[in-house]
Design a protein around this nucleic acid. Structure first.
Lengths: 341, 341
DNA sequence: CTGTTAGCGCTTTCAG
DNA sequence: CTGAAAGCGCTAACAG
């Protein structure tokens, strides 16, 4: 397999083409001031040897950059973030850049480590879905001239470009939709309020209730679920309550999927019919939403576009010369799709 | 934001600590042969300046490697591959390595480009879900001493470590299960037969039919769907056929989800009841499978484990000294989960 | 225990 | 149009 474990260098290419390393370098950088026939010889040597410029060596020269973008997300396995990463990757690839991907598992110290590592690899910039509100490591990055773009979540007090969703607006409208359909006991399943989106969506939910003169019942609110299984468990608890909700607002797809799974399983026992179970609104669309056994509406948005936008914000700052411009804060709209099922 | 756009170097740290660059270097590499009190001074300077070793500069020194693993997958947006990437990332992180991620969109030339770029960045190795059977660029990588691990799909004639699923076995068992439930007209939805998994799963399906004396009806076989929407379309065509199938074998999650969506939508019209629709077997589990409106069985496996295994094969070759060992070909078992719904 | 020298692969001067 | 020299940030190897 790796018999001839050797990566050719400029020198070897030069030797083979009978020129100096500089001529090879020039040829590979566009060929300005190199006789066409010499270029041909160089290119031939490159092909024969299978030469690839060492980008790491290039990147240590002053002025040159690594062409790398560090991407730190909280959970690649969530298709939402996978799609987000795809958006970043696409846009980065268009600008000739590559992404370094790391998973933080929603862990702040892991994120700090990751950022440190990224800086060591001389990334040109960072796209981060922050795991927590701590920002020392991100400020550090900025101070070294490595811009940071926050995606999906902002951090209080950190001056950085950011792109987030209209969380509160979406949650508000979704909850209002439930109230309009006659519900007054509306449960809430979301992630921790300490998380940016968690807090904003919860606020939207509360504001909707208040705007219609409804009082929130804290016993119907669960905000600690990170996984589908935890969401199922929370749903089970909600359904077992004395006076269970007739509708549930799910603040993200993990929770909506957990709720629907639990409802599906309980339905399969045949003890109760579908209309005995709560109607659902989900922040985040997800696959097979249309198979929901209960009425379902979805607050829809495009994670890929979120990724693209984050990348574009970063690339603008890197290539667009706007290195010192004021932070841009973008809020992407969401759309309410009623009665997906 | 980037006011003091400056990344400190060893020299500056050395100066600040009143030592030579070598002492800084030694301290950062474990501190062998450096007086503890001097180490402290160095570490203090590092912290004050926010110094990070330039990994790119380190990696050009002989013997040192980049610590990067190039990962080329066909579609990050598919949660299956997202989870796969997570597995690779996890295992790489345990070995102190980072992943460079690229998306090929199932496009062979894009894959070749990506591999070239990865080589330029001096990755230690490659994990590839090959988009096509072409392997020149991968052999090239191996020749330069950069090992390649193939995941999910193998390439005929390429000597490389690989980890794939028991595609044929799974498809065989899934199809047999349908036959055992009395079905004789069994449709097939899969991706192109030119794709490794496509061919293997199709073979398993055919072999199952043949083993029970059933003849495959080519009009019930569709093998060109890459997306959920294409799968829906294909399902619609199948259901509209003169003598429609009473069961469908779906060779991947895109196709199963498309089929279930189409069935769900048709059911919602109320023209026919659920038992008028075909029973489904899906190769690949997926979220909300339990909400299927028709009986569903699943050929289950763990993409994260696939990713971990691929990474481990690569790391073994890199760190385990087994640089020249014969290629290892792993086939992960799959499990048939009958009656998920 | 610490510093000096040299050179990794590359490219920006500066001379031809 | 082409090459020689110098140095990017870092660390083996060799003094001391």
């Amino acid at each position: 397999m790796g018999e001839r474990a050797h990566r050719p260098t400029v020198k070897e290419v030069a030797q083979r083409a009978g020129v100096s390393p500089m001529t090879v370098s020039r040829t590979l950088s566009g060929g300005r001031n190199v006789k066409p026939e010499v270029q041909e010889r160089v290119l031939a040597a490159v092909a024969e040897l299978g030469y690839h410029r060492n980008e790491n060596a290039r990147s240590i020269r002053p002025g040159h950059s690594s062409g790398l973008i560090g991407v730190a997300i909280t959970n690649i396995a969530n298709p939402y973030y996978g799609t987000f990463a795809l958006g970043v990757e696409e846009e980065a690839a268009l600008a000739g850049r590559r992404i370094l991907l790391g998973n933080t598992s929603e862990d702040a110290s892991r994120e700090a480590e990751l950022v440190g590592d990224f800086l060591g690899r001389r990334v040109d910039g960072l796209v981060v879905v922050p795991a927590a509100a701590s920002s020392a490591h991100l400020e550090h990055s900025q101070r070294q001239g490595v811009p940071v773009v926050l995606a999906s979540r902002r951090i209080e007090g950190l001056e950085a470009d950011s792109v987030v969703l209209a969380d509160e607006d979406g949650a508000f409208r979704g909850t209002i939709a439930l109230i309009d359909r006659g519900h007054t006991r509306i449960g809430y399943l979301g992630n921790a309020l300490s998380i940016f989106t968690g807090a904003r969506r919860h606020t939207g939910y509360l504001r909707a209730l208040a705007s219609r003169g409804l009082r929130a019942d804290p016993r119907l609110v669960a905000t600690a679920q990170q996984t589908v299984d935890q969401a199922r468990e929370a749903t089970r608890a909600l359904l077992r309550a004395e006076n269970p909700p007739t509708a549930i607002f799910c603040a993200n797809n993990r929770n909506a999927i957990g709720a629907l799974k639990e409802i599906g399983v309980q339905l399969a026992t045949g003890l109760r019919t579908a209309d005995a179970f709560p109607e659902i609104v989900s922040f985040d669309d997800f696959e097979l939403a249309e198979l929901s056994p209960v009425p379902l509406s979805v607050i829809d948005h495009d994670p890929r576009e979120l990724g693209r936008t984050a990348a574009r914000l970063l690339l603008d700052r890197l290539d667009g010369g706007g290195g010192e411009a004021a932070p841009r804060e973008i809020e992407l709209p969401v759309s309410l799709r009623l009665g997906v099922r």
